[in-house]
């Protein structure tokens, strides 16, 4: 603690979606126990003091769960550590004197709002096309009346852990959203509650995904490698299987 490290930052600055962006270089004094975003707080404080514009970036929970933070760090979404979001990354993962390049998610479906902040509303539209169980409030039966084996519950939970951050899209050279969509489809098709809409759901979500301009999947696996919640690549296989089955059944 306390020992200071110098970091050379190259940060993407872009006023809005309509203007061109460029890298700017900054030097920051950090401490190893600081989080990556706290280092940006320090940088921004200094920029404000110098009468310059602070760097805009998205963040909220800073606990790795809201999915808001989104920086590509040295070419990797959420940075160098496995299974860690940008906000949970700490400066002890870097060395004194390192140069660190920071960019926003890059994908046509995620236009830049400003600097490191992008618009991910395409994800919401995919969910609203079918990522739910159609059950109105008040229609539910007693929670224990349908038994669900622990294995099924655990599978559903594992996929439901997706935080909707978009790192998978950013990591993919085609900007495909298959991991994100696959996670939701896997969760709901595993559970008894998801059965009635199983086929219509997957078709609607895939159609919306295509309409938003996400790219095709070529099974490279970069998405799962960068996913901070370790959503497994197998959800894409499930998604494909569910989709073709629904198509075969004329959905």
């Amino acid at each position: 603690m306390g020992n200071s490290m110098k970091i050379n930052l190259q940060v993407w600055r872009q006023k809005n979606a309509k203007t061109e962006g460029r890298f700017e270089t900054y030097q920051v004094n950090a401490s190893p126990d600081m989080s990556f975003l706290e280092m940006f707080d320090v940088l921004n404080e200094e920029l404000i003091e110098d009468g310059k514009e602070p760097v805009a970036f998205d963040h909220d929970c800073r606990e790795g769960i809201c999915g808001m933070c989104s920086m590509v760090i040295n070419g990797r979404p959420h940075g160098p550590k496995q299974a860690v979001t940008t906000c949970q990354l700490h400066m002890r993962s870097f060395n004194d004197g390192d140069t660190v390049v920071v960019e926003p998610w890059r994908a046509n479906a995620f236009p830049v709002v400003k600097d490191l902040s992008v618009n991910r509303s395409a994800f919401d539209r995919i969910i609203s096309s079918g990522g739910f169980v159609s059950v109105n409030t008040g229609n539910a039966v007693d929670a224990n009346s349908i038994l669900i084996s622990k294995e099924v519950a655990d599978t559903a939970f594992e996929s439901a852990m997706c935080i909707g951050c978009g790192a998978c899209v950013s990591a993919c050279k085609n900007a495909s959203a298959m991991l994100f969509v696959g996670a939701k489809v896997t969760q709901l098709s595993a559970l008894p509650q998801g059965q009635p809409e199983r086929e219509s759901r997957v078709v609607a979500m895939v159609n919306q995904m295509d309409a938003e301009g996400f790219g095709a999947c070529t099974n490279t696996g970069a998405c799962a490698a960068e996913c901070p919640k370790e959503i497994p690549l197998s959800v894409i296989a499930t998604l494909n299987r569910e989709y073709y089955k629904a198509k075969l059944n004329g959905k």
């Binding site: 739910f132 169980v133 059950v135 409030t137 008040g138 229609n139 539910a140 039966v141 007693d142 929670a143 224990n144 349908i146 038994l147 669900i148 084996s149 622990k150 519950a153 655990d154 559903a156 939970f157 439901a160 969760q187 709901l188 559970l191 509650q193 998801g194």
Partner: peptide
């Protein structure tokens, strides 16, 4: 709890399948 389970919220379960 009933409503959330109906929506597909994956609460923790016992081996017997109950919550």
């Amino acid at each position: 709890i009933d409503q959330c389970v109906a929506q597909g919220v994956p609460f923790a379960r016992e081996y017997g399948g109950t919550l």
